Computed example of a mutant assay.
Amino acid sequence: MEFAEGKILAEAKDGVGRITFNQPEKRNAMSVAMWAGLEQALDAFEKDAAVRCVVLTGAGDKAFVSGADISQFDRLRSDADAQREYSKQTAGGRQRLAAFPKPVIAEIRGFCMGGGLGIAMSCDIRLAAEGSQFGIPAARLGIAYGFDMVRNLVALVGPAHAHMILMTGERFPAAEAERMGLVNRVVPADALAAEVAALTRTIAANAPLSLYANKRTVQAVMADRAERDIAALNAAMAACFDSQDYQEGRRAFMEKRRPAFQGR
């Protein structure tokens, strides 16, 4: 599948959906159209019951996403009013990624900067290749990032590291990102694809209802107390215990075989 005139590519295979940011000539910088395309791709994968998890990655080996497409700034983000309109235009993609119910993994090569880092932080797991570079250059552009992105950053690295990243605007290497807790794991560049494939095989083989319930609960833990729907969390947990998959999981354990989960 192609969205945003081919700037967002999506394919599904063996239970794994894969979305590629496909603007390598601009280091996969995100345009407004690409945000809409991301929303459409995620919608398609949520509706596809065969897709158990999703991988986000960038085309080529130069960048995951290098940030927002700065060539659109003069036209779309020239002042505060324009920025508010830009935020409205891109909100669908951002909110869709943040609320996506299935596991999402960021496969990071090269530059992961600014809004690109925001996308990676909205994923559940981040694997990075050695040689990747990270940063939020907002202070060097004279702009500020919104509450949700900064909250994600603080949740991952803590306030001290968040201040360092935001106040310096500097790039830092993958090893530093791993040390701070920004990425889960750093692997040699030529091993990244295999590492992600192994991870997605593991996740795709697990019970979909459990994945959904556990992801939702982690999100609730990190949310403000007023935003937590405890009744919905309890209902998701009860659905797991009442599911055919729970019965299958118990049988498979006793029979010493791999379970065949169906998501019901």
Rank of each mutant, 00 (worst) to 15 (best):
P259T: 05
A175W: 01
K215W: 12
Y145M: 07
D43L: 13
P101V: 13
E130K: 09
R179T: 07
Q262K: 14
R140G: 14
E107A: 10
G118P: 04
Q23S: 14
M237T: 13
R140P: 06
R75D: 14
R140M: 12
N28A: 07
R216N: 14
F147E: 12
K13C: 14
M113I: 05
I19N: 05
G131W: 02
G15I: 09
V154I: 12
V51Y: 08
E11C: 15
M254Q: 09
G169V: 07
I230R: 06
A260K: 07
I203Y: 02
K215C: 11
V183M: 02
Q83I: 01
D14E: 08
V65M: 11
G60D: 05
A41P: 05
G181R: 07
S210T: 15
L199G: 10
A160E: 14
S71E: 13
R228L: 12
A193R: 05
V55W: 05
Y86V: 00
A49C: 11
R225E: 11
N22P: 08
I125W: 02
L153S: 14
D14I: 13
E170G: 15
T202D: 08
D69N: 13
A238S: 07
A12P: 01
D124A: 09
P103F: 04
M34N: 08
H163G: 14
V32I: 03
A204T: 01
K256G: 00
F172W: 00
F64E: 01
D43A: 15
K88N: 06
Q40I: 12
Q244S: 13
M237N: 06
A235W: 09
R77I: 03
Q72L: 05
T202K: 02
V218W: 13
S122R: 15
A10Q: 02
R216G: 15
N214I: 14
E46F: 02
S31A: 12
A155H: 11
Q95W: 05
A239Y: 04
D14P: 06
A239S: 12
R179C: 02
A189T: 09
L209Y: 03
D74I: 04
M34V: 06
V186G: 11
E227P: 10
A260D: 03
V221L: 13
I143T: 05
D229G: 15
T200R: 02
G6S: 10
I125Q: 10
N234W: 13
I165Y: 03
R257N: 04
A63W: 00
A98V: 05
M164G: 11
L209E: 00
S87T: 00
D148C: 06
V183N: 08
V187N: 00
A91P: 00
C123N: 12
L127E: 09
I143N: 03
Y212M: 15
R27M: 04
H163T: 13
A139M: 08
G67Y: 00
D190S: 10
F172N: 10
G131C: 08
R84K: 10
A194T: 06
R216E: 10
A98C: 08
Q133R: 07
I230W: 10
A162S: 12
A207M: 15
Q23T: 10
F21G: 09
Q95T: 11
R201E: 08
E107G: 09
I119G: 07
G249W: 00
A10C: 14
F172M: 06
R257F: 09
E248I: 12
A44R: 09
A144H: 01
F21R: 10
G67N: 03
I105S: 08
Y246L: 15
Q247N: 07
R251G: 09
R96Y: 04
F172T: 01
